[in-house]
């Protein structure tokens, strides 16, 4: 357990002392929210209807942006090889890195989401649902992202391939993430959508560390 916590602690240290990294993601997230009202026009009702989708797109893109630093730096300075010799199983180390990745790339977005709510004219209830669906759904994005980053880590300048690889995997997350917020006409299905989103996240978190660890191990060979 100390090893597991040591990995998380180190990742947090590295991300927070870098300072800029985390802030860049948050700014990117907010900028999308700022730009959309200008592009769509100042129709408050339309904005409020688009808001759940826009928030999820912004979160998805911002998380893709931070994906490349998950394994690449460790691969380049030789840390990744040494992590495989640790007392801890390598998949557990990858799991710790995924958690840390969520903490530094998803949690700040959720903290910053009130700004988007204001910009996109969301009401309080829709905002509450948005925060909940982001909390439940972003772990799946982090987990899928880790698999993509692991597959492309041995490719030089593979940073752009990972988002292409994982985009299809992330589509269900976006569908149910938005579904868990939407307050459109017809029967309210946000509850089941949220449950499905939770199932997606749990499954992705359980399987992704093994898949990512396997991808790194066989990529080195």
């Amino acid at each position: 357990m100390t090893g597991f916590l040591a990995v998380i602690g180190r990742e947090l240290h590295l991300a927070l002392r870098g300072g800029g990294d985390v802030l860049t993601l948050v700014l990117f997230f907010v900028i999308i929210g700022v730009v959309v009202p200008f592009a769509v026009g100042p129709d408050q009702a339309l904005l409020a209807r688009l808001a759940p989708g826009v928030v999820w797109i912004a979160a998805f893109l911002a998380m893709l942006l931070g994906l490349d630093r998950l394994f690449r730096a460790d691969n380049e300075d030789g840390t990744l090889i040494l992590l495989r010799q640790a007392d801890l199983p390598f998949a557990a180390i990858v799991a710790a890195k995924v958690m840390a990745h969520w903490l530094v790339s998803a949690l700040p977005l959720i903290v910053a989401s009130p700004m988007l709510a204001v910009l996109l004219a969301m009401d309080l209830e829709a905002f509450g649902r948005t925060v909940l669906s982001l909390l439940v759904g972003t772990p799946a994005l982090a987990a899928f992202g880790a698999v993509g980053a692991a597959i492309t880590v041995s490719i030089r300048r593979g940073g752009l391939i990972a988002p292409v690889l994982i985009a299809p995997l992330c589509v269900p997350v976006l569908i149910f993430g938005v579904g868990a917020i939407a307050t459109g006409p017809g029967p309210d299905q946000s509850g089941p959508a949220l449950l499905f989103l939770a199932a997606l996240s749990l499954m992705a978190l359980a399987l992704a560390p093994f898949a990512a660890a396997f991808a790194i191990t066989s990529g080195e060979d």
Binding site: R10, H13, L14, R17, G18, E76, D77, G78, T79, I81, L82, Q85
Partner: peptide
């Protein structure tokens, strides 16, 4: 049961 020490030192700046 082994330590591998390669030519890359696996050190992190900022720490």
């Amino acid at each position: 049961q082994l330590h591998y020490c390669g030519h890359r030192n696996a050190l992190k700046p900022r720490l």
